[in-house]
């Protein structure tokens, strides 16, 4: 699903985002990207979203070399992946339904498809009764569920999550993780950058640890720290 070959990103101010990262994330995998602040997690997510360009190396997503994608190609790449952020990033003047529908509206989806898929996704995340609410009328957890529904409504093969539980209390965070797990069980590849050690330890999924931009650990069923909890 994702193949990263010797990826290096050096920003214009000389800061090093990631250095010589080589990764292979298979279709249907659930992978955590962990590490302390400034270790390169966000840069890696930005590279996958094509928000920033690589300095060196190559990135393949779904067997497509996206390294040299132009601005014109980027929207089409992003439609093939769902994105969930720590701060939810919902459109404030649209209802829950409209926020989810918007992700379909920008594609070639017909009104019929939108009317069919959006309620289905809202049901899945448990927001069917709040479809007419605006983001500011929702709790943090509900907003994140809405963001999740938006991310999966086009049925992307890849879901990228940047600290999706960062703004949530532990119980709500686990709700979101359960949903992500369920989405992953249905075949969607999930890549999640996080600081939440309890979640990483509890999920027992693949863990890719970064330090100073380098991949320092890549364990199939690992924990957050180096303790090799599961070894």
């Amino acid at each position: 699903m994702i193949r990263i070959n010797n990826a290096t990103k050096i920003y214009e101010n000389g800061a090093r985002g990631v250095q010589d990262v080589t990764l292979n994330i298979e279709k249907g995998e659930f992978a955590f990207i962990v590490g302390s602040s400034g270790c390169g997690k966000s840069t890696l997510i930005k590279l996958l979203l094509k928000e920033v360009d690589l300095t060196e190396g190559e990135i393949f997503i779904n067997n497509e070399n996206v390294t040299y994608f132009t601005n014109k190609d980027i929207p089409f790449l992003r439609r093939k992946m769902g994105v969930v952020f720590q701060d939810f990033r919902l459109l404030p003047n649209k209802t829950v339904y409209e926020n989810v529908a918007f992700a379909m509206q920008i594609t070639d989806a017909t009104n019929r498809e939108i009317r069919r898929n959006v309620p289905m996704c809202l049901s899945m995340v448990g927001l069917q009764k709040k479809s007419k609410a605006y983001p500011n009328q929702l709790s943090g957890g509900e907003q994140q569920r809405c963001a999740l529904a938006r991310a999966i409504v086009n049925n992307p093969p890849l879901l990228i999550c940047d600290e999706p539980t960062g703004n949530l209390d532990p119980t709500t965070a686990w709700d979101i993780m359960n949903l992500l797990n369920e989405i992953n069980d249905r075949g969607t590849t999930v890549v999640m950058a996080t600081h939440a050690w309890d979640i990483v330890d509890g999920m027992k999924k693949r863990v890719i640890a970064l330090k100073n931009g380098f991949v320092v650990r890549d364990v199939e069923r690992g924990g957050y720290s180096d303790d090799e909890f599961y070894s």
């Binding site: 439609r79 594609t107 070639d108 989806a109 498809e113 069919r116 898929n117 289905m120 996704c121 049901s123 899945m124 448990g126 999966i152 409504v153 086009n154 049925n155 686990w174 709700d175 359960n178 949903l179 369920e182 989405i183 249905r186």
Partner: peptide, 19 residues
């Protein structure tokens, strides 16, 4: 959260033809 998912039997759109 699992208890909140009565739609387990109605999966999210799975047909690639939707896109």
């Amino acid at each position: 959260s699992t208890a909140n998912k009565p739609e387990n039997e109605t999966p999210i759109p799975n047909k690639r033809s939707d896109i």
